[in-house]
Amino acid sequence: MQRTFRFYRVNSNILLQRNLSDKTKSQTKQSSVVVDAWGQHVTLRHVQDPMFDSLRRWTKALNYHEAPSVPSTIAALDEAGVDRMLISAWYAPNNIMISNEEVFNFVSQSNGRLVGVGSVDISRPQLVMREIRRCIEKYGFKAIRVLPWLFQVPPTDRRFYPVYTACCELNVPFCTQIGHTGPLMPSEVGRPIYLDQVALDFPDLTIVGGHIGYPWTEEAIAVATKHPNVYIDTSAYTIRRYPRVLIEYMRDTGRKKVLFGSNYPMINPVKALEDLDTLGLDESTRALFLSQNAVRVFRL
């Protein structure tokens, strides 16, 4: 009897996972394409960095003992019915956690399923323009991402301005994190209102603020509403945790302003898409959220 009980529990867990995956796929099938606007294909030196110890309190997804394969990331996309994911390099001060070259290698192995996003070390301004040009012209990346909390300065800091200039010149979006940080680093630099000044100084710059801006989501919505080239992505949050004000914005004036994102591997796309139907989006708004906004913004 004991063996039978164990067999039943294991198989019921497998069936539960399959049912959740099938449910998520059925929720997303109304959109012909699903694009995940924020993900990473991690390296061990990135995912094992002590700065992420605080995140490991919340999830076991970051407990890697060997580098993941590109097929494993593609399998996570397939499980959720996601067509493409934008994956980013990670550059911190004097610390390359995922290099642009590595991202290019991962993208090259993915048969078009992964889309590259470059990064730079803003503490080395003499290299910024050259590296961004290489990312766009040599590697074919679709955006540049720099995280203010890694450098502990806001996006209005003068060291960011060569990045904005290069993105404008090369006509690619600038992506960043807005809201508080999971790692134990100061969150103030993630206030969405800083992007208001950036958008005023660079009106032609497309800006995508990831992680919804919580606990300043209303501030993020205000900036996105004010500036035609400012957008929000929902990465790092499951749908159950979307603030009500964001959902209302998505249903109304923000239909073309919000992009789906997961923050894989912190959250698997299948988990990030659970409860999609509870948003109450009509078919056209759902398609904008899941793919069309990202396709337009990143020129996919």
Rank of each mutant, 00 (worst) to 15 (best):
G116K: 13
V120I: 11
L195A: 05
R158C: 07
N171R: 12
V103W: 08
A75H: 10
S88G: 07
V189R: 13
P203F: 03
V117C: 00
T181C: 12
I144Q: 01
V189N: 13
C167R: 12
W90A: 04
R145E: 00
R113I: 08
A166C: 08
M85Y: 02
L127N: 02
A76R: 03
Q109G: 09
A76E: 14
C175I: 00
V82G: 10
I193D: 08
Q109E: 11
P183D: 09
A75M: 13
L77F: 08
V163S: 04
C168Q: 15
V70K: 10
G140M: 12
P155R: 12
A89C: 01
S108L: 05
R159C: 04
A67F: 06
T165H: 11
I96F: 09
L170V: 02
T73K: 03
P162I: 01
A199F: 08
R191H: 06
C135M: 10
D83G: 14
G116H: 06
Q126M: 09
E188C: 10
E101A: 15
M129E: 13
N171I: 13
F141W: 12
E66K: 05
R113D: 11
V115F: 04
F141V: 01
V163R: 05
P93R: 09
S108W: 12
Q197W: 14
N105D: 10
E188V: 05
E188M: 14
E66G: 02
A80F: 08
N95L: 07
V103D: 02
V128T: 02
P162T: 05
E169F: 07
E66M: 15
G179D: 06
N100A: 03
V153D: 15
R124C: 15
I193S: 09
Y91P: 00
P68N: 03
T176H: 01
E101W: 02
F160T: 00
P93I: 04
P148S: 07
Y164Q: 05
E137K: 14
G179S: 03
Q126K: 11
F202L: 04
D78E: 05
K142T: 01
V172S: 03
E102P: 01
P192D: 04
P192A: 08
E131F: 04
Q197V: 03
P68C: 02
E79W: 03
A67K: 13
F104P: 00
P154Q: 06
Y161K: 03
M85C: 12
P125F: 10
R191V: 01
P192H: 13
P186M: 04
R84E: 10
S187H: 05
R84M: 04
V153P: 05
A92S: 10
S72D: 11
Y139V: 02
Q197C: 05
I178W: 09
E131H: 02
R159Y: 11
V115D: 04
L195H: 07
P162F: 06
L184C: 09
R113T: 03
M85A: 08
R113W: 04
F160A: 03
V153Q: 15
P162H: 13
A92K: 15
L184I: 08
K142L: 03
N111E: 13
P173D: 00
I178Q: 14
A143N: 13
L170A: 06
P186I: 11
Q109T: 15
Q109L: 14
S119D: 00
V172C: 06
R113H: 07
F174E: 00
T181A: 14
N171W: 05
S88L: 03
E79T: 07
T73H: 08
G116S: 10
V117H: 00
P125W: 11
F141A: 01
P183L: 04
N100Y: 10
